[in-house]
Structure formats: structure tokens, C-alpha cells
């Protein structure tokens, strides 16, 4: 039992054996409030320090998207929708397509976000997800190529250009091709998929990186791209629902975020309040082979201490790693197998 002052106090019952007395002069979001829980190695919502919140996953919720998934990590809710569009491949890499992740933090999800252009945090998270996708080789971008170096009959130079955007499922004919002035008998036509992965935060209660990455992975697993054929006579790209193909992912990176409290204590899967009080944060991304794909640790807090904590496996540290491991296993189970449409409880 802990009591910090003579002020009127209220008793927080966490489970059968732990009771924490919190002075009502302590603000719920204050350091003082939090310190009391810290001593008991428990958090205000009843979790242990390394415990993650219950996770729910719902795959294929949005019919208008090519792939979609909704993730609930405690109260944090992220909806990811993937939409494919045609685009000309990058000039220096004509065999590749694009994957464009974008995280939105609209004012709808929390009162701390304002109406207007994307906030700094939204841009940082988007960039972080993009870096993770790149560094983990999540998807072979060459598999997003549709037509590269197709020599069209008749020796005409035909070049695809994108007028309309996107592919309405089930509709053939997306755009026309123009005939450029004769540039030689054999010109190459180039066409690739660009996958726009929009992750919208619907309820913000901390740790959006982990939630966004699960949502992204599950949505990509759910993607069915229509088959594309290039009509040799007209030079048009024709899509059809028959023969649509699921996307192949080369690995399953899962992110795990911790915040550093008091420079010594690590809290896994932080809530919004914990993120606000913490002195530092770290996100580690590991794939199913156990390779670290990315480590993100802004700020100087615990700079020396943290890497060791993750890289070695002794004493206290191994406990953290085990926690990490069970968390990853749980999430990999879902993202690893082919996830059919439906709702899942990951616990």
C-alpha cells in the first residue's frame, strides 16, 4: 500500500492483491500519480510493465479498397485501406512499382490534433513506416511492374500515360494511349502499380506505429489486384477481375514500441498518457526470422542503456525479450498465414 499525503485519497483496485492509494491532489496525468504505480511494477490500467494491450484485427472491412484491415490495439484504432493505381515506373528503375504509405491523424481521433494539413507527428510516422517498408524489403517492388519493355506490334512507338486515376474494379479500359511521334521502330511501353496505403487513425491512445504496421501488413495480405492485359492493337491496359492475384510479401516485420520512464524503466505498448510522461521512446522492428529491420529511438534518454537492453539476453533483459517474443509470435500468427476476411481476436 502506498500513500503519499494526507490529502483525501482514493483506492485503485488493480487486481486481488494490489491496492494503490492515490491522492486526489495528484492529477491523473501527473508524474506523481504515475510514480506510485511504478514502485509496484504495475501500470494505471492494470498491465505489467512489459505487457501489451489486447489486440483485435478485422480484415477486409472496406469493399471499395483493394485490401483493407482494421486494428484495435487497446483503444488505439487504425484503419488501413490499400488502393492500386497505374503509374509510369520511376525513370531510373523501370522495372519497379511503388508502395506509398501514408498515416493520417485527423482531428476525429483525438482533441490534440487540429484541422488542416498533416501534423508533424503524422508526417514522421508516415516516413518511419516508409523506412520500415524499405529496410525490411517487405515487398518486392518488381512484382508491381505490369509492362516493361513490351514491344508493340506494328513497330509503332506507343507510350502509356496516365490520365484518369485508378482502376474501378470490374471495369475494363482505363485510359488511352497516345502515339508519340515516330522515335524508332521499337519503343518500350512502361506501366506499374502504385499501391497507396492510407492508414487512418480513428481513435488515438498511443503507440500508433505498432498499430499502423499491423494494419498495413494485414491490409497488404488482403490485397487482390485485378489482372492487367495490354491490348496490343489499341495499346490500352485492360483490367479484369478474373485472374486477380494476391500480393506476395517477402517478410512480416512487426514493430514493438517501448517508452523509457525515469531513464531506467521500459514500458511496452504505451498509452497516450504514458507517452506524454515518458522521457524517451524506442521502436524496434523485427521480422519473423528474428532479424532487426529497424530501430527508431529519437532523443538522448537512455541512449547507452537501451541498445544493450535489446541486444543482450541476460537477467532482466531476457524477460523483456521474451515478452517481445510472445508478442511477435501472437501477431505473426495472424499476419503470417493467409488471412481470410473476418474478425480476429489476437489474445
Amino acid at each position: 500500500m502506498i500513500s503519499c499525503s494526507w490529502y483525501p485519497t482514493k483506492l485503485l483496485l488493480l487486481n486481488d492483491d494490489i491496492k494503490i492509494r492515490v491522492s486526489s491532489s495528484c492529477n491523473k496525468y501527473s508524474f506523481c500519480h504515475f510514480s506510485k504505480f511504478k514502485k509496484e511494477n504495475i501500470r494505471p490500467d492494470g498491465r505489467e510493465l512489459g505487457e501489451f494491450r489486447a489486440t483485435l484485427l478485422n480484415v477486409g472491412t472496406i469493399n471499395t479498397a483493394h485490401g483493407s484491415a482494421l486494428v484495435k490495439l487497446g483503444n488505439t484504432t487504425i484503419l488501413c485501406g490499400v488502393k492500386g493505381e497505374f503509374a509510369a515506373p520511376p525513370v531510373n528503375e523501370p522495372k519497379k512499382g511503388y508502395l506509398v504509405p501514408n498515416v493520417e491523424l485527423p482531428p476525429l481521433c483525438s482533441s490534440q490534433f487540429k484541422v488542416g494539413p498533416p501534423s508533424e507527428q503524422a508526417q514522421v510516422v508516415s516516413q518511419l513506416i516508409d523506412d520500415i517498408v524499405r529496410s525490411s524489403n517487405l515487398i518486392n517492388l518488381e512484382s508491381l511492374n505490369i509492362a516493361e519493355g513490351v514491344v508493340l506490334s506494328g513497330g509503332e512507338s506507343v507510350y502509356f500515360f496516365c490520365v484518369g486515376t485508378g482502376v474501378a474494379p470490374g471495369f475494363a479500359c482505363c485510359w488511352g494511349a497516345t502515339k508519340l511521334p515516330e522515335r524508332g521502330p521499337k519503343a518500350l511501353s512502361k506501366l506499374s502499380w502504385v499501391l497507396h496505403c492510407d492508414m487512418i487513425c480513428l481513435d488515438y491512445d498511443g503507440n500508433i506505429v505498432d498499430a499502423s504496421l499491423i494494419a498495413l501488413l494485414a491490409a497488404l495480405k488482403n490485397v487482390l489486384l485485378p489482372a492487367v492485359r495490354i491490348d496490343e492493337d489499341t495499346g490500352r491496359a485492360v483490367t479484369s477481375q478474373e485472374g486477380s492475384i494476391p500480393l506476395k510479401l517477402s517478410c512480416q516485420p512487426v514493430a514493438t514500441s517501448f517508452v523509457v520512464f525515469d531513464d531506467t524503466i521500459l514500458l511496452a505498448d504505451p498509452t497516450k498518457e504514458e507517452e506524454g510522461l515518458a522521457t524517451g521512446a524506442v521502436t524496434v522492428v523485427v521480422n519473423e526470422e528474428g532479424d532487426i529491420c529497424s530501430v527508431h529511438k529519437p532523443g538522448k534518454e537512455g541512449a547507452l542503456y537501451l541498445p544493450r537492453k535489446f541486444m543482450t539476453a541476460s537477467g532482466d533483459v531476457s524477460r523483456d525479450l521474451r515478452k517481445l517474443d510472445s508478442w511477435l509470435r501472437k501477431h505473426w500468427r495472424v499476419v503470417k498465414d493467409d488471412v481470410p476476411t473476418g474478425a480476429y481476436d489476437l489474445d
Partner: peptide, 14 residues
């Protein structure tokens, strides 16, 4: 504030 998710329609909204 009214917003439509970019993936809410048949063609992607920019």
C-alpha cells in the same frame, strides 16, 4: 468536418 477516406470510392480520391 466532413472527410472521405481516400479508399472510400471506386476511384482513389487524391
Amino acid at each position: 468536418q466532413y472527410s472521405m477516406a481516400t479508399f472510400s470510392t471506386g476511384e482513389r480520391r487524391s
